[in-house]
Every structure is written in structure tokens, then in C-alpha cells.
Amino acid sequence: MPVAVIRGAQRHHWSNEWLHSAQSFPVTGNFDLQANAFGVLMVHNEDVVDVGSGFDTHQHRDSEIVTWLLAGSIEHRDSSGHSGVIVPGLVQRMTAGRGITHSERNASTRAEGLAAHVVQMWLPPDTDGLDPSYAERDFTADLADGALVPVVSGLRRHADTPAVSIANRYVALHVARLPSGVRVDLPPAQFGHLFVARGEVEVDGVGVLAAGDVTRHTDMAADGPAAVTAVSDVEILYWEMHASFDL
């Protein structure tokens, strides 16, 4: 099972006066997202957004955009009439389809003074030109048991679970909040992307990963699952992917 390790410091970092963005795949500037993708994951940004700031209204099309909060809150508004506040434990999926505009801003007041710490991920849909759509669900209670929980999925085996649907039948995003010492197996897949959002984990055959570190696994289905053990209290995000842009 080939594994590449990308440390947090090795990511593409970009900052301005209100945003720091650590990008697993370079996004800022003139980059070819498909050429830089791993599996079908094109964007995996860890952003810290200052109070009173955010992304003004902008457009997307033919992409599945998944947002997960690590701290703070983000207010979302889009041209399809959806609005709401995303907080830790709540996953958001937006299908841009044939075209949608939206804005994302730190929902904290200046009195509260809380930066928003957000992970945003983009993938392609199976079909272009879909109707724009939006879904969200709070998984806080599901994550309390220290298990690996599918929070977004297009896989058939998750059809009867609470996972939010995504218009890509080859992928699933799993999240776990693990206390120290707890061990979980990552579902085997042709492509696996493990992100350590908080704390430290030990991955069998790889070693210890800290917050911000990533592993990119290929051909996991052939070798069986990779086991992850929490070295401290941790939060991990794992994309299970059974397709890539190369296929």
C-alpha cells in the first residue's frame, strides 16, 4: 500500500490581512485543480478567517463543496435561497451544479472575537449541469462514541445511514473524534486521504502524524485497511475514494 506523507508545513500557505489558508492542493493563483488532485479530491483547504471577515459573493459551477468547522462559526448565504450558520460538528454540502453564487463569512461578533477555523473540500460531481442544491446535518451526537462516522457519502452502502448525500457515487467523507488510545480502521479504498485536524495519531506502517499532517494512500483495497491509533485526543477527516481523474 503506497503511502505519501505531507506534513502541515509542506502545504501551500497563503495569507492576507484577514485569512490564513493552508492548502493541501494549491488553489490560490492560476492552478490546474484537476492536475493537482489526488483521487477526485481537488481542494482541501484549512482556513482561519478573522472576525468580521470572509468571502464575499462569488460563483461556482459543477463542483461538490463540503465544509467542516473545527472552531468558531461561518455564516453561509447562496443564490438558491439557503442560509445558515455552520458550527463544529455540522457538515455542509453544496452542489454548485449549473451555477450558484454564495458568500461565507465569520459569524462571530467582534465582542466574541472568535476566529473561524474551517476545512473546505471540493470534488467533481458525476454529472455536470445538475440543479444547485444544499444539505447540512449535525453529527455531534454521532461522533461522541469515538467511532469513524460517514458524514458525507455517495457510496451505495451508506444509502441508509444519516450521511449527507453527494453527487459523486465513488466517495465518502468519514470523521472521528477519538480519545487517546482508541484505534480505528480506515475503510480500504483505491485512494484514501487522511487529514489530522487536531491532536496526534499513529498510523500503522507510517508513524506519528500531528495536526495539519496528511497521508495519501493508494491501493488500500489490495492490502486491507490502515489502522489509526490516537496518541492524544484527536479529530481526523478521511476521504474514501474509489475513482480518480486518471481513470
Rank of each mutant, 00 (worst) to 15 (best):
H12E: 06
H13W: 01
W14L: 10
L19C: 02
H20C: 05
S21N: 02
S24N: 04
G39E: 10
G39C: 09
V40A: 04
L41R: 08
H44T: 01
E46C: 03
D47W: 02
V48N: 06
V49M: 05
D50Q: 11
D50A: 14
V51K: 01
G54K: 09
F55N: 07
Q59G: 13
H60R: 12
D62G: 06
D62S: 09
E64L: 12
V66A: 01
W68N: 01
S73I: 09
I74R: 01
E75L: 05
R77E: 08
S79W: 15
S80N: 13
S80I: 15
H82Q: 06
S83Y: 13
V87F: 05
P88K: 04
Q92A: 03
G99Q: 04
G99A: 05
S103G: 13
A111H: 09
G113F: 14
A116N: 07
A116C: 06
P125R: 09
D126V: 07
D131P: 14
P132K: 15
A135K: 14
E136A: 06
D138M: 10
D138K: 14
P150R: 03
V151M: 01
V151Q: 07
V152S: 07
R156K: 12
R156G: 02
D160N: 08
S165T: 13
V171S: 11
L173G: 02
H174P: 05
A176P: 02
R177E: 10
L178V: 06
S180D: 15
L186G: 02
L186V: 00
P187Y: 02
P188M: 01
G192E: 00
A197F: 12
R198K: 15
D204G: 13
V208R: 15
L209E: 12
A210T: 11
V214R: 09
R216H: 02
T218V: 05
D219N: 04
D223G: 00
G224F: 04
A226M: 03
A227F: 09
A227M: 10
S232Q: 14
V234C: 15
V234M: 14
I236G: 07
W239R: 03
E240Q: 09
M241L: 03
M241P: 00
F245I: 00
F245Y: 05
D246W: 09
